[in-house]
């Protein structure tokens, strides 16, 4: 049972990484990062069935951190949108990438 959850978590994490690598929309990139964080959450919960309750507590920490990151990240996307009218990372070339 735990193994299946872990495989699912690994697949979700890999999908998140893939998304960050191939997509170019800043919002989608950010969603892919969130997918990676949630894959880690799933792994924590799965392990906590074997190891103990700690893993489930960690998930709350991670959720809080993810919320803080979302607030800051979306604010940054908005401030950039005001300058370039775009959220496509291919258009952000004032600085050499």
């Amino acid at each position: 049972m735990v193994q299946y959850s872990l495989w699912l978590s690994a697949v979700l994490f890999a999908l998140g990484v893939l998304g960050v690598v191939i997509r170019r929309n800043a919002i989608i990139l950010f969603m892919c990062v969130e997918l990676m964080l949630n894959a880690a959450n799933l792994a924590f919960v799965a392990f906590s069935r074997v190891v103990g309750i700690d893993g489930q507590v960690f998930v709350f920490f991670v959720m809080t951190v993810a919320a803080a990151e979302a607030a800051v990240g979306l604010a940054i996307v908005i401030s950039l949108f005001r300058h370039s009218e775009s959220v496509d990372t291919r258009n952000f070339n004032l600085l050499r990438w």
Partner: peptide
């Protein structure tokens, strides 16, 4: 605009 662009790249 450079500051915002640097921030987005750093953040992501």
């Amino acid at each position: 605009a450079r500051s915002a662009e640097g921030a987005l790249k750093y953040f992501l």
